[in-house]
Amino acid sequence: MNLTLRIWRQHGPEEKGRMVKYRVEDVSPDMSFLEMLDMLNEELTLAGDEPVAFDHDCREGICGMCSLMINGSAHGPERATTTCQLHMRHFNDGDTIDIEPWRARAFPVVKDLVVDRSSFDRIIQAGGYISAPTGSAPDAHATPVPKADADAAFEAATCIGCGACVAACPNGSGMLFTAAKVTHLGLLPQGQPERDERVLNMIHAHDDAGFGGCTNTGECHEVCPKGIPLASIGRLNRDFLKASRSISR
């Protein structure tokens, strides 16, 4: 298949960027979206041009490195799929595809399609951990966890921190990511000691990073490659209000 790509090119964080048009020919429908970009970059390199910078790592849909706003959808048109797992068979011969970086004040562009997502790291540092003795692994039945809680915690724990929720949110909010972390740790007995501090500190870190607030439109859940439930934001809200009350007491 032959495609026209319009890609955001930006030399550095302070430079002005623009959409640049490229042609790619003989794309196999079995290629992943990133392999298609690799092919373009090979051609650009051979022609002596600067290749397009984009984030990627495991290419198995589990590391959270790949991103890309593809035709206005985070991670492209397929539901619950990362860009690395998106195959070219979902596009048609002759298509024009627009590729842009995540757009958020908290995710500044580093170069071309690469954005700096360390604001997510700062949210994690603010409370995305538990204090537990390290050393040998405890017995599996030492701390019983109800099955329903374990399942819900695990569902939240599948968040890979890619930032698609922020990219898709009309408010540029990082609430689904933060809610996933709060849910994941807050549902488990090991997460209880820091439960109140966690939610308060993570929300402050979230707001300080320049993310917007949540208006419950649900765009984040639509694009989330892991399908984190929108209702987890309700759990975050409840934990936040409860923690606020107990702190002021």
């Binding site: 319009r6 955001w8 959409m19 706003m69 035709n71 206005g72 959808s73 627009d98 842009e100 757009r103 958020a104 004040r105 908290a106 562009v109 009309p170 408010n171 540029g172 909010s173 707001d207 320049g210 993310f211 917007g212 607030g213 208006t215 439109t217 649900g218 765009e219 639509e222």
Partner: peptide, 22 residues
């Protein structure tokens, strides 16, 4: 919150799928 949301995305998307929310 509207002002914070506006500030949260200083550069707009060139191509944005219409928001699907109701």
């Amino acid at each position: 919150l509207a002002l914070k949301a506006k500030a949260a995305r200083p550069v707009k998307y060139a191509h944005r799928r219409p928001v699907k929310g109701s």
